[in-house]
């Protein structure tokens, strides 16, 4: 795992790409795309997407507090965008997720999903810290944010199309996916640069950083978040 500083970002990107492939080649994802998933599975998927991202602004706010100067601007931009404050016409992203639930006929599930999202955040706050300081915690959290942006820039269009075609979710309710497929290409590139800046600013060695990044991306991180019953493949 020895990398020079110049190649850290590309090593991370390769890791991200592998995790995206893990998601998009999983049986669960393929079933969504080709219409073989049951309606209960589509519903569960939509709920899990909402649960995974409803509280993203809170996570970004935490990361902004830890941001190195070189990445602070990008993180602030992301945060304002999540909050719907970047442009006059923007809507907060959590509201786009609520639109998704409503458009999918799952409005009645909203209180439960909001409670689950709250509980997920509560656990992040109250669970014993695995790492020795916030420096490492921040790297793990930033990795997850950037990794999801990277994945969404490559897969959210496909997901949106699948939900439109097979689950009949109306197009306006799919704005969250549309938005992410468009803006996250830029975010993902900025995110990788931000990760690199974070690693340098806090004085991680490449090995040390990659160890934490790999932990944050543990096998099939996206599939585990979007398919809660996802079972990892057997070890070779």
């Amino acid at each position: 795992m020895n990398t020079s500083h110049g190649t850290l970002a590309s090593t991370i990107e390769a890791l991200f790409a592998r995790r995206v492939a893990d998601l998009t080649t999983s049986a669960e994802f393929r079933a969504l795309e080709d219409g073989r998933a049951t309606s209960a599975q589509y519903d569960a998927f939509i709920e899990n997407v909402a649960r995974a991202h409803l509280r993203s602004p809170q996570l970004l706010a935490f990361l902004y507090a830890l941001a190195p100067p070189a990445a602070a601007g990008t993180l602030l931009e992301n945060l304002l965008e999540e909050l719907g404050r970047e442009h006059e016409s923007d809507r907060p992203h959590p509201d786009l997720l609520r639109d998704l639930l409503t458009g999918a006929g799952l409005a009645h599930r909203r209180p439960a999903i909001e409670a689950e999202a709250d509980d997920d955040i509560r656990r992040i706050v109250v669970d014993p810290l695995l790492y020795g300081s916030l420096r490492e915690v921040g790297l793990a959290a930033l990795t997850e944010i950037v990794a999801f942006e990277y994945m969404l820039s490559r897969a959210s269009g496909r997901i949106g199309r699948a939900l439109f075609a097979h689950r009949r979710v109306p197009a306006p309710a799919l704005a969250w996916f549309t938005h992410h497929s468009e803006v996250d290409i830029r975010h993902a590139e900025q995110g990788l640069a931000g990760l690199d800046a974070y690693v340098r600013y806090y004085g991680f060695s490449d090995d040390e950083a990659l160890t934490i990044i790999e932990m944050a991306l543990r096998e099939n991180v996206f599939a585990r978040r979007y398919f809660r019953d996802f079972v990892s493949p057997a070890v070779a």
């Binding site: 543990r218 096998e219 585990r224 019953d229 996802f230 079972v231 990892s232 493949p233 057997a234 070890v235």
Partner: peptide, 16 residues
């Protein structure tokens, strides 16, 4: 309950 990662040893291979 699914495992985050599969767990294997000489007597067993577990994924949940």
């Amino acid at each position: 309950i699914p495992f985050v990662e599969s767990f294997r040893h000489s007597a067993s291979d577990r994924r949940w």
